[in-house]
Computed example of a mutant assay.
Amino acid sequence: MPTTPHARTRALRPRARRTALSAVLIASAAALAGACAALDTPADQGAEAAATSGEATELRLGYFANITHAIPLIGVADGTYAEALGDTTLTTEIFNAGPAAVEALFADGLDATYIGPNPAINAFAKSDGEAVRIIAGATSGGAQLVVREGIDSVEDLRGATLATPQVGNTQDVALRAWLLENGLRTSVTGGENDVLIAPQENAQTLDLFKQGSLDGAWIPEPWASRLVVEGGAKVLLDEKELWPDGDFVTTHLIVRTEFLEQHPETVAKLLEAHVSTGEWIAEHDQEAAQAANTAIESLTSKKLGDDVLLRAWSNLRPTNDPVAGSLQTSADHAAEVGVSDKVDLKGIYVLGPLNAILAERGQEPVSAAGLGTE
């Protein structure tokens, strides 16, 4: 019988599990209080409350039905998250792209969400650095520019129509920045374009590409692989080619700052589930791919074909590391292409709770690259 992270958690002796978790919660709460105290923001005022508040009655969590969200896909589906949260009710919502998830978070419809870097940057900037914090990485890699036959270079894209998941989302910014770097203009305000970008839902992108109405798309997995395998597209650029060592943040976990301050134990339990699921994925690579696919099917009523699944899975890396060094570059790109203003990201990361859990498990800490408290 396949082993799931949920089954593995249940196999632990209850007393040992409770003792270990209690130790982590205490360490995480202390780390959180220290993190808030270190930030010169209104979060200072919540530091004392963070150490004493009770657990939340409900955690509202967002994520996408994309393979780049493998950790929540698997961990929510098999019960790891619900079990880790204990008496806290887990409520989930599925989004197509990051800006919509941020809107829900700002409207107090979410407490935490898995999201790409640029929507998180925008949320941080629009709230003057107050509304959100990044608390963990989730995925590196897994985004490509795929195009129709006949397009063999960036210059061949002049006059083309390309899709992205949503204006201002991570892939949208990456595409606009890369085109600008190569001398091709795009506009988010109806100005002149050398390349027309048509943001839309990923499923619509696949249909329109098959119909010949799109020349290509810069999209995350599994959609890049679906366009290649099902639509006959080819890869013009794998985004990892643009980053040192091919490592860049595709998905990370953010939380409302207020929720983080008020319910540190709940956030620690969320991170426990996140880390446990990531460990299981690392130990069960191909089984994890199938588990993520099953979760996608349950959410969308459509299962990825084996060719699509294997191709997509090989292009990404689930990780606790938020690859913080790539975040400022993404922020700079967004400003360059007119999606957002220039932003100082200092304080966007609170990684103390995550690092407390990693230390408890004998793992190396992850870095905020100078943009938060380590």
Score class of each variant (00 low, 15 high):
G370W: 10
T52V: 10
R317S: 14
S22M: 09
R60G: 06
N293I: 01
R10S: 01
A27R: 14
E265W: 01
Q204N: 14
E103N: 06
A47H: 09
A138C: 15
T170P: 04
H333S: 13
K303F: 00
R60H: 10
A82R: 13
V173I: 14
D247Q: 11
T329V: 06
I296Q: 03
F209C: 11
R158W: 00
N96D: 15
H252L: 12
A174F: 07
V146T: 12
A295V: 08
V308P: 03
N202I: 14
I296N: 02
D128Y: 11
V249N: 14
R133E: 13
T319H: 03
P365N: 06
G109E: 14
H252M: 08
D111P: 05
L237C: 03
Q204P: 03
S298R: 12
T52E: 06
D332W: 00
P353Q: 07
Q328W: 04
P2T: 11
L354F: 00
A174L: 14
A295N: 07
L206H: 05
I151M: 08
A30L: 10
R185F: 04
N355Q: 01
P222A: 15
N96R: 13
L316H: 08
N193P: 01
M1S: 13
D152I: 08
G86V: 07
E48C: 11
D78L: 09
D321A: 04
N96Y: 07
T68L: 07
A104D: 09
A224H: 04
T266N: 04
T3G: 00
L59T: 01
T3E: 06
P14F: 00
E241Q: 14
L236I: 01
R17A: 12
R133N: 09
Y114E: 08
T9M: 12
W178V: 02
F106P: 02
P42K: 09
A33D: 09
L242Q: 15
G352T: 05
L309G: 08
N169F: 06
A56G: 09
S340W: 09
A331L: 08
T88V: 12
L21V: 10
S127H: 10
R158S: 12
A56V: 12
S213T: 14
K342G: 09
A224K: 06
G137D: 10
T329Q: 13
P353F: 03
V132G: 04
W280H: 13
A136W: 02
R60A: 12
G305I: 06
D44I: 15
L73K: 04
V228S: 02
G325F: 04
I26R: 13
H252C: 00
L73E: 05
A37M: 14
D307R: 11
D344G: 00
A101K: 05
A356M: 09
T300Q: 13
H263Y: 13
H274S: 04
L162W: 11
Q328H: 11
V275P: 02
D344T: 06
A136F: 05
L309T: 10
A84R: 02
E336P: 05
D156Y: 00
R158I: 00
R148S: 12
D307E: 13
